[in-house]
């Protein structure tokens, strides 16, 4: 598998180099490059390495209580990981909050392992505490791969979270008057050569929601959905969203519910 990955990377770089010189063919070559890369990786997405790290973190006792996360309740009962990600975000009785995967992981780390969530919330996405979160998210999301997304707001707090997410999606601000809808509110548009999913629709929502966490080829990094949203807010020229804050969970609820019925393809692989 590792060999295949490096072959894929070489192929991708080679095609990219051609693209840089052959101006007129740049677009086709770049797209072909990505497609060739995707094909080469079909049974070897580097995200698998993160999934393996995440599984290890999940099962290894840690924190002041020297406990693993194996008894974490992700919504389907303590210890059930299979299929849980496809049903998030959801309302949890114990916290009386609507939570996405990453906020729920923080709850479990605090309750089961006795860890303080603060350093995890405050760390940069490239710093070790966040790397743990992203690996855990990769692992849990992989356990829903191929499952139908099943998020239908029923609890009043889930419905409110959906409403808040919808309003947030259209909320304009900042020096450029951007909202999520500026870039993701029309069918078939793109920024430069990057296709922009139409998030209010089922297919576009699924293209976004159903494929993150994802390994980003251009960055050589694994990104969680929280990181993806953080970077879109940066491009939107907004102030920074707090990690696992309600605005990010509300947008996640909006996307997941819009995507409901489509298939989870996590962890994904992206440009």
């Amino acid at each position: 598998m590792v060999d295949r990955v490096s072959v894929g990377v070489a192929a991708f770089l080679a095609v990219s180099a051609v693209a840089a010189t052959a101006y007129a063919q740049q677009k086709d070559a770049a797209q072909e490059g990505i497609e060739a890369y995707r094909e080469a990786l079909q049974d070897g997405n580097p995200a698998e390495l993160y999934e393996a790290t995440g599984e290890e973190l999940w099962k290894t006792p840690a924190g002041p209580k020297k406990a693993s996360l194996e008894q974490c309740d992700l919504g389907l009962g303590p210890g059930v990981v299979k299929g849980a990600y496809a049903r998030l975000p959801r309302h949890f009785q114990d916290t009386d909050r609507v939570q996405d995967l990453e906020s729920r992981l923080l709850t479990c780390m605090e309750a089961l392992q006795g860890k303080d969530p603060k350093p995890y919330v405050e760390a940069a996405f490239t710093a070790p505490p966040k790397e743990e979160m992203i690996a855990l998210a990769a692992y849990v999301s992989g356990q829903s791969k191929g499952d139908p997304i099943a998020v239908t707001p029923k609890h009043p707090k889930e419905q409110a979270m959906y409403d808040l997410g919808k309003r947030m999606f259209y909320y304009q601000g900042g020096p450029y008057d951007f909202s999520c809808a500026t870039c993701h509110g029309q069918e078939g548009t793109r920024i430069r050569l990057q296709d922009l999913p139409y998030i209010p629709g089922t297919k576009g929502a699924a293209a976004g929601w159903g494929s993150w966490p994802a390994y980003r080829v251009s960055a050589g990094q694994m990104w969680s959905m929280q990181w993806r949203l953080n970077d879109c807010f940066r491009q939107q020229r907004f102030p920074e969203p707090v990690y696992t804050s309600d605005a990010t969970i509300a947008l996640s609820m909006f996307m997941a519910a819009n995507a409901s019925g489509e298939t989870m393809k996590t962890p994904g692989i992206k440009r």
Binding site: G173, G174, P239, E240, V242, S245, D246, A247, T248
Partner: peptide, 15 residues
């Protein structure tokens, strides 16, 4: 409750 100042991007941009 969801946003914080970062660099030149301050929370007053939400107003």
């Amino acid at each position: 409750a969801s946003f914080k100042d970062k660099g030149i991007a301050r929370i007053d941009r939400l107003t």
